[in-house]
Structures are given as C-alpha cells and as structure tokens.
Design a protein around this nucleic acid. Structure first.
Length: 487
RNA sequence: GGCGCGUUGGUCAAGCGGUUAAGACACCGCCCUUUCACGGCGGCUACAUGGGUUCGAAUCCCAUACGCGUCACCA
C-alpha cells in the first residue's frame, strides 16, 4: 500500500487506565513509529453513564508518562476530527439514514423484557441466543402503533444471511465466521447514541485507519464490524488481535491480581522505560537475546509477525527485575522523590522535610538503590536509616552477639571511630580491615556483630557505605544502646 | 450452550518438517566480595492427550481435554 500506515488507540474513559490498554497503545505506537506512520488517539465515550473526564485525563497522562505520543487526536487535533465519539454524532447519523433508506437497517420496538424473554427461551431450547428478527418487517402502521404506545425504537442492522465472514488477522491468520450466528444487532440505541460496534467502524473508516491493533476480546466482534464495512461501502482495515494479559490464576487481569492500572505502578515508583520494556515483552519477542531494550530499540525491532498468539500471564517478578535494571542507572534524587510519599505515609518523615534532611536521604538512596526493585521499596530499608531505637530480639542475632570476640570487636570499633577525622567510606572500610587484622578474627565475625549492633538487622547494604551516611554519633549511640540492652 | 481463539519448563518465550528443543525471570548451587548485596559461572525443569499425513512432526491435519474470549440499547 502506497499510503502510510495509520493506526489508532481508542480507549473508553470509564476507569483507571489499565495495563492491558497500555500494551495495546504501545503496540500501536511502536508500529506507527517503525513505519513512520500516524497514531490517532480517539476517545470512545458513547457510554455516557460510565465515561468521565477524569478517566480521559488519566489516560492522557499515563500515555504521556510512558512516552507514547500521538500524532492526531484529542488535544493535538488533525484533519479527521473531532476525536471524541460524542462529538461525532452527526457523522454517524448520516450513515444511519443511508442504512435505513436502503433497508439494511430497521427500527426495532422490542422492549428489554421482550428481548430478554426471547433470549432466555432460546437458551433453554439450547439454541443461539440471537435476535430473531421480530421487527424486521414492520409496516408503517405497526410502527405508528408502537410509537403511540410511547416506545422509542433502537436501530438494528440487518445481517446478511448465509455468508462466510472472513477476518484476515495479522496475528491469528484467517478466521472465518458464519453470518447466521451473528443475528441482527443494535447499531443505534433508543437515545440516538450509536453503539460501539457501529461507531468504531465509521470512525476507523473516516479516520482512514489502515491497521486496527487491539485486544483479543474484540475478535468475536469483528465479524459484525466487517459486515458493516461492507454495507457502508467503506474500506475494511487490516486487523491484528493481540492476546490478553492474564493474572497469576490465568484469568483476565483484574483488581484481585493486585495493581492493574498504569497509575498504580507509577505511584509505586516504577520507571516508565521499564514498564514499556516489560509490556513490549508481553506478547512480543525480540529476535536477539537481549531483553533490556530502549524505546528506540523496540521501535527498530518491533514487528507484528513476532506477536504471540497465546495469552500471557503478568509476571511481577520479571517486571521487578526489569525495573531494577533501569533503577541502577537512575538518578538517586529522582528515586528519592518517588519514594518520599511512601516514606511520609509510613511515618518516617513529614512532607516539609528540610533540604538538609533531603540531601541525606538522597545519599541513603544512592547507597541502596541497587537493592531496589521499585522506589516504594525504600520504605522497607528505611529502618536502617531512621530507626535508632530497634531491639535485638531475634535468637540468631543474639547468638552472634554472644560470641566471645564481640566485646573486643565492638570496643575497638568505637575507639577507632572516635579517632577518625573524616568518617567516609574508605575510612570505615579501613577500620573494618584493621579490626580483623588486630584481633585476628574473620570478616564474618567483624561484620555481622557490627551490622546487628548498628542496624538491628542481619542483611543489608554495604555497612561501610551506611555508617558515614547515618553518621558517627548515631552509629555509636545505637551500638551503646544495643550492647547495654543485652547485658 | 453456540461461535471464536489458544495450549513448548513455575512464568515470559524462540522454534515455521530433520535442532543436543534457544534465551530471560524465578528457584537451587558454586565463584567473587574478609559481611550483605551486585556481578560471574553452572544446574533444575517443557512440546496437553489421542489419532493420522510423512522416511522423519513441537512444527501439517483431525478429534478429545483444559483454559480464555464473545454472544448487551458496555466498550
């Protein structure tokens, strides 16, 4: 095709922006970037009950945060606007008139109750619960009678019978459906608002979308759309249905599976590059063996024929690992900023933290950032830095402190610390070395007691790094206090 | 229930008729580090089942099982 590729992302603003939506957006974006095509952002807000302005904002913010930019659509404009479905009602109306005039669509006066009863009866009889066409051939008199009753019609599309509907899918291959299994479906609700399956067709066609990349849950809807493209005489785009993202229990990701919105990950202190990297790997795989890939690399390598058919389970361990890779090279001040709300919430600091305290905290962050999967985890290490009043109750720790070498090690440590002019990493490291040498005890017998006595923990970041950050005063006070308590 | 899609290790996955069935995460072990981590090295574990087609099948076909999606005046 000579024309450039035009793809779109068309979320409905009905809740927090889901991680699955982010992946769909990402795939479209990667494809557009790769082919120097155009990504359109359209808002599908025909569900007026559930659509909110906040959700729309949330989606835009999340996309921007992830670095997914759109070339055309809400906010940025373009030649195919407007880009919000509720602002396009007049466009749909034109097409509806044509369909009605040609008899390809008709008014349906059935009530919810009638439809429901019919559906139930069919189900009970073990048949397909599709609309039986009760209103297919109403006369003008019958319609008038219904109107006089106060019934407001919906508009149904007359689905052609005995047709094989073919969807040539970029990821699934050729999928065929029988038109008899579809049933006349509603295209315009009784309030005059078009239904998703209808609006999406007109929008994609009039926006000249060439490739529709979306989640697999839409595959079963596609025959309806194909049949509409044909009826409207509009060009059908290429489809690509990407499989779903599942939770640990192999069902569609939902609240039960923990954090599911982009926002939640952002707040926990995950980095956008890591999320993008992780999402790209969920359902797509690179040719090479390297899995840590920048957006530029992803764009270069991305292609639809490497998109997997099978659904993928969201693996938080892998996300954590990928994020940790990006965290290592990240600016400690930034990580610290991301962690601060969590430190406040955990009660370690208050929001009005001084510049001096903040600087210390950044130092601390720098010392531990290799240990973090995401910024909020800093709270798990925060005791190290903030808690001067820990108690040693753990039996294993007590045992280590009961060793005969401990008194000598601790007192020599205190002495050497006090003699120090500058307390820095090299100096502390030298002290450890000297203690081991002078007392002829192994590394473990030097480090473990001192670690426990100064931090109340058995594991943690490099002690020689931590001591200068916590400071001589506090370190020695902690040690004295702990030793005292054990007597 | 109808229709549709899927099924390679615990997880993500490569594989497109002939491979010792890649790689990554997790897990385990070893090394490095006089602690802890990081890092390095190594190990563990897989083609859902049953029939075909073929000289040869993880790869092609058909059944079965299981999972998921969809059948709204939601998107």
């Amino acid at each position: 095709m000579a024309d450039k590729m035009r793809v779109r992302f068309a979320p409905s603003p009905t809740g927090p922006f889901h991680i699955g939506g982010a992946r769909s957006a990402l795939f479209n974006w990667l494809l557009a970037k790769k082919d120097e095509g155009c990504l359109v952002l359209r808002i599908e807000d025909t569900d007026r009950e559930r659509s909110t302005k906040e959700s729309e904002e949330n989606i835009k913010e999340a996309l921007k945060w992830l670095g997914i930019t759109w070339d055309e659509g809400i906010d940025v404009g373009g030649e195919h606007g407007p880009y919000r479905q509720t602002e396009r009602l007049h466009i749909y109306e034109e097409y509806t008139k044509k369909l009605l005039a040609s008899g390809q669509a008709y008014e349906c006066f059935c009530t919810d109750e009638e439809i429901e009863a019919e559906r139930q009866a069919l189900k009970d009889a073990g048949k397909m619960p599709i609309y039986q066409g009760h209103c297919r051939h109403l006369t003008e008199e019958q319609k008038e009678a219904y109107r006089a009753e106060g019934r407001k019609p919906t508009i149904r599309f007359r689905v052609p019978e005995n047709q094989e509907i073919i969807v040539d899918d970029m990821v699934r291959g050729r999928v065929t459906f029988d038109s008899n299994g579809v049933g006349d479906f509603v295209i315009v609700k009784s309030d005059g608002i078009p239904v998703y399956n209808y609006a999406v067709v007109i929008d994609d066609a009039t926006m000249e979308i060439t490739h529709v990349i979306r989640a697999e849950e839409h595959l079963s809807n596609t025959p309806r759309q194909v049949v509409l493209y044909e009826a409207l005489g509009l060009p059908t785009p290429r489809f690509g249905h990407v499989s779903l993202i599942l939770g640990k229990d192999r069902t569609k990701m939902s609240k039960r599976h923990g954090a599911t919105s982009v926002d939640q990950y952002r707040k926990l202190g995950y980095l956008p590059e890591a999320i993008v990297n992780f999402l790209a790997l969920l359902g797509w795989s690179p040719t090479g063996e390297e899995e840590i890939l920048s957006a530029e690399q992803l764009i270069e390598q991305f292609s639809m024929d490497r998109v997997a058919k099978n659904p993928a389970v969201f693996d938080i361990d892998k996300l954590n690992w990928i994020n940790a890779q990006y965290m290592k090279n990240a600016d400690p001040a930034m990580i610290c900023d991301l962690a601060i709300p969590h430190l406040v919430e955990a009660g370690y600091i208050t929001e009005d933290i001084s510049a001096e305290e903040k600087a210390k905290l950044v130092e601390f962050t720098a010392a531990v950032q290799d240990h973090l999967s995401y910024a909020a985890q800093l709270t798990e290490l925060a005791d190290l830095y903030f808690n001067d009043a820990f108690d040693v109750t753990d039996e294993e720790m007590k045992e280590i402190l009961a060793d005969e070498t401990v008194p000598a090690v601790t007192s020599l440590f205190a002495q050497k610390m006090n003699e120090l002019e500058v307390v820095d990493f090299a100096a502390v490291k030298a002290i450890f070395k000297a203690i081991g040498k002078e007392l002829k005890v192994g590394g473990k017998k030097v480090f473990m007691p001192l670690r426990i006595v100064t931090t109340g923990q058995m594991h943690g970041p490099d002690l020689a790094k931590m001591i200068p950050i916590i400071g001589r005063e506090r370190i020695l006070a902690r040690m004295a206090r702990t030793l005292d308590a054990l007597k």
